[in-house]
Design a protein around this nucleic acid. Structure first.
Lengths: 349, 349
DNA sequence: CAATCAGATGTAAGCGCTTACATAGCACTT
DNA sequence: AAGTGCTATGTAAGCGCTTACATCTGATTG
């Protein structure tokens, strides 16, 4: 500005000073009446609140943030809200943080590491005090940038033993080892796999690794012609199952799917092809969405409590903000839900 | 503070002044190098950027917001993220706003008007510059509070002709009139209805009204024993269909559902009960979720482009922020998707 | 060659609030 | 009566940045 005058502040609303004047107190008291009511005599507090209401005043966020060095903002970075799994995680996180007065700012990476970095940069520029990010496959320096600003963070949806980051999630590799063991125990030796894009996606990569390793221990390998990678959709599940079953050579007796949407697609297509599930073909999903128990046959899948991930992430961050140095949260358990889409391997492939 | 001294600023990071010193320029130039690069000579800009990188500096959001009176924050209020419909709306909104540098802050009301008011209060206290809120059934003064702070807003997911608020959505009543007409044309006279909770929910209320009115025009009334209101879930859809079909008296030949989850539940239960769809019973949904075309038989439903709602809401708000006075956005069309779950009414009820 | 002008940079006044410290008032002690 | 604690309130110094205006430098022009 430079000028002495802005006397009549062009526009906008009341300032703390106006409220103070109207209430006949100082701005310090106005501030305290709002931020530390117990430090202000009840009748004065009343007066201040009344004056504020009359002027429609509320502390200006930027002024407050600047002076108090608190923004009460936390950020969450997810691939997309179009996936229930992340949506419910964010929902639970928001609910929990909101209860402690922290507001959630959201960023979507669309499964792209550059967008992820960019969204986080912007959230930091908006003053987030804590951050929850899905996964740990990010650009080099990604976590350093966050930590460098003194912002506590937590990785969600995966929990890799040995990861240097605090994380709230489950062990994706272990979850798929569990699925693999289940099918091996049923006698399956010929497997198919339909999964989501794995690029920049540590969760998917860990799952594939868990599956492959466990199969390999029994001397079983996935044939490339029985593996499909593509978008998460019922349609892709259908089309993949069909092309897998049409591939030359012996058919798989079990098809493992990266999530329930793909598995439901596979199930629908198997029915359309007249392939009996589970007599001829076992199919597994992942997530245990609501629909999974309603399919025909109901889907064997892994259950993960996504809302719980959000809640724990929130609790962890809240503890960090409170200045405590919480221990890294323990991994969550994923649980195999046995339903009728898996059964003993057919005699011959 | 009061003291002269905080000489060595206890903690934290570099300030614009430090960057300025390192780069050998004034803070004004530092600021310009970041916010209006074209106003700074290229070589000086370089120097500033280098100095900033070296110190790990980034404009402090509160300082910037205070001085510039811009927060680049927008809020979105929805009932819950657990519903795809809202999740995809928020996702699209976020994507669009983010492209213009606006970050999205999220609040969930859990379908409760008090929580809605509270969340909005908090978002205003965090400095949102624009707001998208689902629905217009809110506490008295809700919109006045927002408008009173000069914050532009838009109502989403409903578009009631005659509403005083700018809104981006479709006409819920008209959509259900359309469904009703479809079924009436197929000869149905006995209707059932399974719908979500209607309290504080103008969208649901409008739908019920559209349905009832259209049926009434043909002299048809919904029998209370054929109406169920409850949670949005496949399970509630199943259980409702069963109890409707078990109710004494003539059975409905068509059951209208408030959304696809309920309809899918109804469909599954009909199959379980051995009731032929559509020969004996027609069932309709709403939303056209991915699963709707995969059910057996595929579900007749209304398609609404939720992402488009988010996008248009974002565009409208962006235009407001740009100082334009955009015309209120036109309503979206919802479209009846005819599939095999509806058919001619059975001869006798 | 002086005058004019445009562009680049610096100067410094806030933006509106919080909070450390000072102070005033009051009730008790001793 | 003076001293001792408290508590409730006021004082005023920033928090870190942006930006209007002033200034300076060169280039352009008549």
């Amino acid at each position: 500005m430079g000028r002495g005058g802005r006397e009549r502040n062009g526009h906008a609303g009341a300032r703390a000073l106006d409220v103070a004047a109207l209430a006949g107190v100082s701005t310090a008291t106005v501030s305290r009446a709002f931020n530390a009511p117990e430090k202000v005599a009840p009748e004065i507090r009343e007066k201040v609140l009344k004056a504020a209401a009359e002027l429609g005043w509320m502390p200006h966020p930027a002024g407050a943030a600047l002076a108090s060095r608190r923004t009460w903002l936390a950020g969450v970075l997810i691939p997309t809200l179009d996936n229930d799994v992340f949506a419910s995680q964010v929902g639970a996180l928001q609910t929990r943080l909101s209860a402690d007065g922290v507001t959630v700012l959201i960023g979507c990476s669309n499964y792209d590491a550059d967008q992820a970095a960019n969204q986080v940069r912007i959230m930091l520029a908006r003053g987030v005090e804590a951050l929850a990010v899905v996964g740990e496959s990010h650009r080099p320096g990604f976590f350093e940038t966050i930590a460098g600003r003194g912002v506590p963070y937590v990785v969600t949806y995966s929990h890799r033993p040995g990861s240097p980051h605090p994380s709230v999630g489950f062990d994706n590799a272990a979850a798929f080892r569990r699925i693999a063991r289940h099918l091996l125990e049923l006698g399956h030796r010929d497997f198919g796999l339909i999964h989501q894009p794995s690029i920049d996606n540590d969760r998917v990569l860990a799952r594939l690794e868990g599956l492959r390793t466990t199969l390999a221990e029994e001397g079983v390998a996935l044939r490339p012609q029985h593996v499909r990678e593509g978008p998460v959709s019922i349609a892709f599940g259908r089309q993949s199952l069909r092309s897998i079953m049409e591939a030359p050579g012996p058919r798989p007796t079990a098809v493992v799917c990266g999530n329930d949407a793909l598995a439901i697609g596979a199930l629908i297509e198997a029915r359309a092809l007249g392939i009996g599930v589970p007599e001829e073909l076992s199919i597994t999903g992942f997530d245990d969405v609501a629909m999974a128990e309603q399919t025909d046959p109901p889907l064997t899948t892994m259950r993960v409590d996504n809302a719980e991930i959000g809640r724990r992430a929130a609790d962890y961050l809240l503890a960090c903000l409170a200045g405590r140095q919480p221990p890294p949260p323990p991994p969550l358990e994923s649980r195999l839900i046995l339903r009728a889409s898996t059964g003993a391997a057919a005699r011959s492939a």
